[in-house]
Design a binder for these strands. Structure first.
Length: 424
RNA sequence: AGAGGAGUGGCAGAGCGGUCGAAUGCACUGGUCUUGAAAACCAGCGUACCGCGAGGUACCGGGGGUUCGAAUCCCUCCUCCUCUGCCA
């Protein structure tokens, strides 16, 4: 959620910035917001005056009652009743103005950072870095959905039977490979100074609003209606919400957490022929990084997180590239996002395996996540997060890129974790 | 899940219909004293909104109600504790 002050003071700049993400209604919505906020202020002022008078009268009544002047007290009670009726009207309208204001604020996405490239679709994302070269595979190399059948390590049919599409079983060395990668990712993050957390994988509605999944992505999360809980689409949600309604001391910054969780996504409307095998699932595992920073440091942290994720990909020996997402492809809550894509040699296609974002104050504003500045005043913090890494597509590219006539060779760094160096 | 008890400022803990945004202690910040520190003493010490300011308004787990007036009474939800039941 953008800050009201910013909308008032930097209206033109924000409209221009939102233009970069092709958000056409910016001007109109901001005008509505400013109008509503003006209404809110004047309504509150009037109401406060009424309440102030009412409080005065109540005190007088108290004093009169004490002195035993019942008659006089009764007399001014009449005035008090009138004030109360008037104030009730104003209070109700204040509540509805605030609600309307909030609803409009919820509709406005975050403003892209200046270094976000202009552009409308994923076609316009800027490739800022490339690493590695495409492995030379044998002519009979096959995509991972064939490999997992051949070696019987991941079973979609079983998942279909037991749950439904997009909920595969990992079996034998497939399960061990996945667990090995999770442990490798967690250990690396801990070495890099992240504090591990194991969060709940269901969240309440408030948390959904806190990080911005609600109301924007309502319908993309699995909803447990009995309790009004949601299955998390990413560990970002519970981990960042640890800091909802929190005031941090400067000396507590930065906050760095890593968490491993399954992630659940309904992916409503996004299914198609191009998402075979592990490319898109309803349930998948992910190790997620979350950082909270002083506003001055967040972009430096964003850079460091990207470099950290790149380091993981390099250790796994995967060819990858880094994209600076263009305005039109940016997620609702992000001010800037770098996507890491690995090249899947058998599919001849780039697969997104990590998304590292700075949300600036967008989430913090909803979360009320603040720190006390040098000026002794409260300020919003910056939140960031990134996948490090999402498992299925990493597994897919390891399987595809490392296939040999004798089996699938494991990257060296994870052999201590898997306990085997070959799936055959 | 049932019965009982409880939720107050960073923490502990008073208040149980008016003068309470809330005693007191601890913690914290500034000052005095001291070579320095400790101790002692003095002062300060929640958040949000409105207002140029003086100041005003709201908030005592959340929401609603009674009342001229609610931290205090009533309803409801949530959380925690104790006992009983169930169970990884």
């Amino acid at each position: 959620m953008l800050e009201l002050n910013q909308l008032r003071n930097n209206r033109e700049g924000i409209v221009k910035s939102l233009n970069k993400r092709r958000f056409a209604q910016a001007k109109e919505l901001i005008d509505q917001i400013i109008q509503l906020d003006d209404d809110r202020k004047s309504t509150q002022s009037k109401n406060d005056e009424l309440l102030a008078e009412s409080n005065q009268i109540s005190k007088q009544i108290g004093a009169l009652m004490k002195e035993g002047k019942k008659e006089e007290a009764e007399k001014i009670k009449i005035r008090s009743a009138a004030l109360k009726a008037e104030s009730k009207v104003l209070s109700e309208s204040l509540v509805s103005i605030e609600e309307e204001l909030k609803q409009i604020l919820y509709k406005i996405p975050n403003t892209p950072n200046d270094s976000v490239p202009d552009g409308a679709t994923s076609e316009d994302n800027e490739v800022v870095y490339e690493h590695g070269s495409t492995p030379q595979l044998a002519p009979d190399a096959v995509p991972h959905w064939d490999l997992i059948k051949k070696y019987d390590i991941i079973d979609f049919d079983l998942g279909n039977k037991v749950t439904g599409a997009g909920f595969p079983f990992y079996k034998g060395k497939g399960a061990r490979l996945q667990r090995a990668l999770v442990n490798f990712f967690l250990d690396e993050a801990i070495k890099a100074g992240y504090v591990e957390v194991q969060p709940p994988i269901m969240i309440n509605e408030e948390s959904g609003y806190g990080t911005g999944q609600l109301p924007d992505k309502d319908g993309q999360m699995y909803h447990v209606t009995e309790e009004n809980y949601f299955l998390i689409p990413t560990a970002e949600v519970p981990i960042t919400n640890m800091y909802r309604d929190v005031i941090l001391e400067s000396k507590e910054l930065p906050v760095k957490h890593v968490g491993f969780t399954p992630c659940f996504r309904r992916e409503a409307g996004s299914w198609g022929a191009h998402v075979r095998g592990l490319n898109r699932l309803h349930q998948f595992d992910k190790v997620e990084l979350v950082q909270i920073h002083h506003p001055d440091n967040s972009y430096k942290a964003l850079k460091e997180m990207c470099e950290y994720v790149q380091g993981l990909l390099e250790k796994l020996g995967l060819q990858y590239r880094v994209l600076n997402l263009c305005g039109g492809d940016l997620g609702f809550t992000a001010a800037q996002t770098f996507d890491m894509e690995v090249f899947s040699a058998a599919q001849q296609k780039w697969l997104e395996v990590s998304s590292v974002s700075n949300f600036e104050t967008f989430q913090a504003n909803r979360l009320k996540l603040r720190y006390r500045g040098e000026d002794k005043k409260m300020h919003l913090l910056h939140t960031l997060n990134g996948s490090a890494l999402a498992l299925p597509r990493i597994v897919a590219s390891i399987l595809e890129n490392n296939q040999t006539p004798d089996g699938i060779k494991m990257p060296e760094v994870i052999v201590p974790y898997t306990g085997f160096d070959m799936i055959s």
